[in-house]
Amino acid sequence: MRSFLPVLTVVSAIVAIWYGACVWLNAAWTRDQAARAGEEAGFAEILAGSFSQERPVLPAPHQVAAELWDATVAEELFGRRGIVRTGTLSNRSLVYHAWVTLSATLLGFAFGAGLGILLAVGIVHNRAMDMSVMPWAIASQTIPILAIAPMIIVVLNSVGLSGLIPKAIISAYLSFFPVVVGMVKGLRSPDAIQLDLLRTYNAGRGATFWKLRLPASMPFLFASLKVGAAASLVGAIVGELPTGAVAGLGARLLTGSYYGQTVQIWAALFAAAIVAAGLVGLIGWVERRTLARMGMAR
């Protein structure tokens, strides 16, 4: 709680800068309107005009918050197609789009993390695999993998796979490498002295793995899972771009940018941020519980 006040200060500073930038960027529109009407716009008009435009250059924070509220709670509770009236999520609500993105993210993340852990186990136990795969895994981090996302989508579409699976594949691919690198580090983290102790106990490879390496790798696993979760959400969002804006947060971004709906873009962006924060927070919560149970909490 010691850092609550400083964080609050920084956040309010960011909001203040945002409002300032709003006036600065949106003032031109109000001035244009006034000039067309043959009047001179005063400071008060510019201020009021900056915060209430339909399609501002930069929407004000309260406009984004209002759009978020309208597109989630209000749309579902009171909307014609909301969950209260129809029993299904409205296709105009951000809840629906966030769920589309989140389901692809979770599926891909589960696949990617599972495969990553398996590969890390293989790399730690097999020298040939370590020497051949590991340099490529590290090198692949320097390659803009996200750039091939549209290609994977289109290719899988032409094979007949569409919807959830192609996005999940991209998510899995992006969350895979952080987990591999982190887990290899974690499984190797026990000291030589600890490994020696287990050797004096005549423990086999299996016992060493389950009783020493795996527990020792837990802090590394959670750290890399957080990175992987954030990466897989980015993968799912980018994976939605080339499918022609059907559903999902990426689709909202794309339609927003086609039709100049800046408020919609910012609302989708914040919805994505909330989903990412939720995922990372959830993993952090599991991490704290697990490490506390294992007596490793700091």
Partner: peptide
């Protein structure tokens, strides 16, 4: 940790 790539349409 946020998907900052999403601001791409705004910047464009």
């Amino acid at each position: 940790a946020l998907p900052i790539v999403g601001i791409a349409p705004i910047m464009v």
